[in-house]
Amino acid sequence: MSDASPDTRSLDVINARSEGTLPGHLGIVITAQRPGEIEAELPIAPHLMAPNGFLHAGSILTLADTAAGYGCMANLPEGAQSFTTLEIKSNHLATAREGRLRCVATMVHGGRSTQLWDAKVMHAETGKTLALFRCTQMVLYPRG
């Protein structure tokens, strides 16, 4: 029997899904899951940087999209099988060169056919907001 709490086991399962995919390759880790909310972190590393020496905007966007995606999966309506992203919007306010990124994604709308998620990406150590993100997810159902 595991000594891990139910929440820890749940996070282990979520993070195991990332292995062998882009979120796992980049180093994104889901750190908390609550109804309608997901938190994730990403250590800043050289492979996340743009050629100009600053954090690549795509790295920030991938963190936010991953958090919103896992949030959507955890909050699918009954009978739904999966989801796909319909639209993404991000506003980048600042950048970073070291430390960790922290993202909090929150469900704004949880309908039967779509979900709308907002995410805020911050520098974990300073709390400075780096980007604001919004995405629309289409809920997918099995054919039948």
Rank of each mutant, 00 (worst) to 15 (best):
G20L: 15
T21G: 06
L22W: 12
L22M: 12
L22P: 01
P23V: 12
G24P: 02
H25M: 14
V29L: 13
I30V: 15
T31V: 15
Q33R: 07
Q33N: 08
R34W: 10
P35W: 12
P35M: 13
G36R: 00
E39W: 07
A40P: 00
E41K: 11
L42W: 00
L42R: 00
P43E: 07
P46F: 07
H47K: 11
L48T: 09
L48Y: 07
M49S: 05
M49G: 03
M49F: 11
A50M: 15
P51N: 11
H56C: 06
A64R: 01
A64E: 01
D65M: 02
T66C: 13
A67V: 12
A68W: 02
G69M: 04
G69A: 09
Y70A: 06
G71K: 01
G71C: 09
C72G: 05
C72H: 02
M73I: 09
M73L: 15
M73F: 12
A74Q: 11
N75G: 04
L76A: 02
P77E: 03
E78T: 08
A80S: 10
Q81S: 10
S82P: 09
F83D: 03
T84E: 01
T84L: 03
L86Y: 14
E87Q: 11
I88P: 00
I88N: 05
I88H: 02
K89W: 04
S90F: 08
N91S: 08
T95Y: 07
A96M: 05
R97I: 10
G99K: 14
G99L: 12
R102C: 10
C103M: 06
V104N: 09
V104A: 12
A105R: 01
T106V: 14
V108I: 12
V108E: 12
R112Y: 13
S113Y: 11
L116C: 10
L116A: 14
W117F: 07
D118V: 14
M122Q: 09
M122F: 07
H123R: 12
H123N: 14
A124Y: 08
E125V: 01
T126I: 10
T126L: 14
T126Q: 06
T126C: 10
G127K: 02
G127M: 03
K128N: 06
L130F: 08
L132F: 02
F133P: 00
F133W: 01
F133S: 00
F133T: 04
R134W: 01
C135L: 05
T136C: 05
T136M: 02
Q137I: 02
Q137G: 04
M138V: 04
